[in-house]
Design a protein around this nucleic acid. Structure first.
Lengths: 340, 340
DNA sequence: GCCTGGCACTCGCTGAAGTCGAGTGCCAGT
DNA sequence: ACTGGCACTCGACTTCAGCGAGTGCCAGGC
């Protein structure tokens, strides 16, 4: 059986009320608060159907109804009107982000802002190396057999790495390697660098080749294999909002999941074309997060995406508002990066 | 009245039992578990005295006793024997830290290790800039009016900052500024740099002075004013250990405090000579943490201290074990930094 | 003088019983 | 197809009694 308009309206009302009050919502209260123009009995019949279809459920016999994950899904996909941000919010975002001096600072401010606006846990991925390009490489001699390699990406991200050289190497040779490496790699997308790094070694005069190979391996490590992307997290205290009711009584699994960078990256890092992704409850592959929802999106200068950001909260969350905020913040951060 | 040895022994037994069981401990159970050689009645009398002196209290009339903050204090100061780490633990620490490739990596591994070993929330401060020295400065031209300043500290920490120049500046001039800055500042303690930076400007030929002044102001910002020291945090999930009993029922204030970097820095950053500092409950100046204890210490290569680290947990924690672990980890990290 | 056994007392915890009421499903009527 | 009515369910809350851990105190013994 398909759901007629009124049933959908009832579902929306249930979701909205439940999100607002955190309590199972009954037919009577629904009619009172939403002027549906029908009687409670009618609503009850609709509810029975919605329950049969799996969109809502009763926590206990003879209590009100609560949306299921599927109910939220339907709500997000078909029923929610996008909430526009208030001008005040827009201004807050702009002002808050404007003061950033530094990539670190941008990310920190962003994640705090997101947490504050959505009142949920916010996660921001640092601009991913694999999606950005090399701006400049610097080699700093530490001792005769040690260099520090500093890589500056076009997103402003900086990585450094110690290089142990196989043999003492003079300052001139270091300068030489530096200029060669820059000539070859500056401006290139990280993903395109491996063959170039190889070429760097191949083109090297024999006597310097082992040294260069050594540098090359660290370069590859830094540019490509570095899978441990960095993250910033904020707003964990928001998990305690709404008492112990959300997250089925225990924050434990959620906090544990939040500590695993790998998990978080999976959640917000897998960004496709500029859509906003909403994962509700069981849709999360992580067991620990089956009681949570994640709203995530990609960000970056212009249309390119260099990283992901998002928020995590109880399935019972204000989806329209959260989605709008996440999108807006992502857009502002993208603009900020574009200015660099 | 002063406390005789047996009363102290009773206090120790109460602390140990309470830490282990998380339940108020009564006179009978105490005698059974600790072979004190006296009867419960005697212990009761001792308890009455201890209570009068403020070292223990009864949650409710006719329940067992629980240590007060003062009780823990006395325990830590006079009663706890230092627990030596097991060889297995030592090996775990060494092995876990050995694989670090990078300062970031060192800090991350350390904080995770601490959290795991103590089963509490761990905090590690990045080597503080103000306590370290400049190893090298690098200036990377981004455009004709923009430079990126990269500062490498002797602790391995790297800071970068964008510099907007007042006028287009050629590559030669940039190189010149770079070598002058390095000549002046490399090897210097951050704290000593301000007059040197000033000298840098003063010694500059007039026509380049405004450019140099511009660089200098960013330098000062980076080297000195940068008060927002960085931190790493791990193990928040451990807060949920022990149910909602610790932290008087709400994790909220604790999580909030953990989000404030300023607060954390105050807690673990104020490191004096290489003592381990223990703050118990009310001794924390932060209101949100009056139900928590913090064990912190400084770390650094050799005898110098470049940063702080520590753990935070319920006042009901295993102090001897925690103190031993914190100290050991700090020592290993210090050794690791010394190798650089 | 200090320790001990005994004893009355306190009081939180637990479980049973009872009440309340929100909310339901169903049915007959419009 | 909707509505009003009605019997029913069942969780939440309250009350009450009994239990038992633990106490404080006191009188007696080493």
């Amino acid at each position: 059986m398909s759901l007629d308009d009124r049933k959908l309206e009832v579902l929306r009302a249930i979701v909205e009320d439940y999100v607002a009050t955190q309590e199972p919502v009954g037919s009577k209260a629904l009619v009172e608060r939403h002027r549906l123009g029908v009687s409670p009995a009618t609503v009850r019949n609709d509810m029975a159907v919605l329950e049969e279809e799996g969109y809502i459920r009763q926590p206990h016999t003879s209590a009100g109804r609560v949306p299921t994950d599927a109910g939220y899904r339907l709500f997000v996909d078909r029923l929610s009107r996008v909430k526009a941000l208030s001008p005040a919010e827009r201004r807050a975002i702009e002002r808050f982000l404007a003061g950033a001096v530094d990539l670190d600072d941008v990310v920190h401010r962003t994640v705090r802002l997101l947490a504050q606006l959505t009142r949920q846990v916010a996660v921001v991925q640092y601009p991913s190396l694999s999606r950005s390009a090399v701006r400049h490489l610097e080699l700093v001699p530490i001792s005769s057999t040690r260099l520090m390699l500093v890589m500056i990406a076009d997103t402003g991200r900086v990585e450094q790495r110690l290089v142990e050289l196989p043999a003492p190497t003079g300052a001139d040779d270091v300068l030489d390697m530096r200029s060669k490496a820059n000539a070859k790699l500056a401006g290139q997308k990280m993903a395109d660098t491996p063959p170039l790094v190889q070429a760097l070694v191949d083109e090297c005069p024999r006597e310097k080749r082992t040294t260069m190979a050594c540098l090359a391996s660290v370069l590859l490590e830094t540019l490509v294999e570095r899978s441990d992307e960095r993250l910033a997290l904020a707003g964990t205290a928001n998990l305690t909002r709404g008492g112990v009711l959300d997250f089925q009584g225990s924050l434990r699994p959620v906090l544990e999941a939040l500590e695993e960078e790998v998990i978080l990256l999976k959640l917000i890092g897998e960004v496709e074309p500029s859509t906003t992704r909403v994962r509700i409850g069981d849709e999360n592959e992580i067991d620990n997060l089956r009681a949570a929802s994640v709203v995530s999106t990609g960000y970056g200068p212009g249309a390119t995406i260099v990283g992901g950001l998002g928020v995590l909260g109880p399935t019972r969350m204000d989806y329209p508002g959260t989605i709008a905020t996440v999108r807006a913040v992502a857009r502002y951060v993208g603009d900020l990066l574009a200015q660099n």
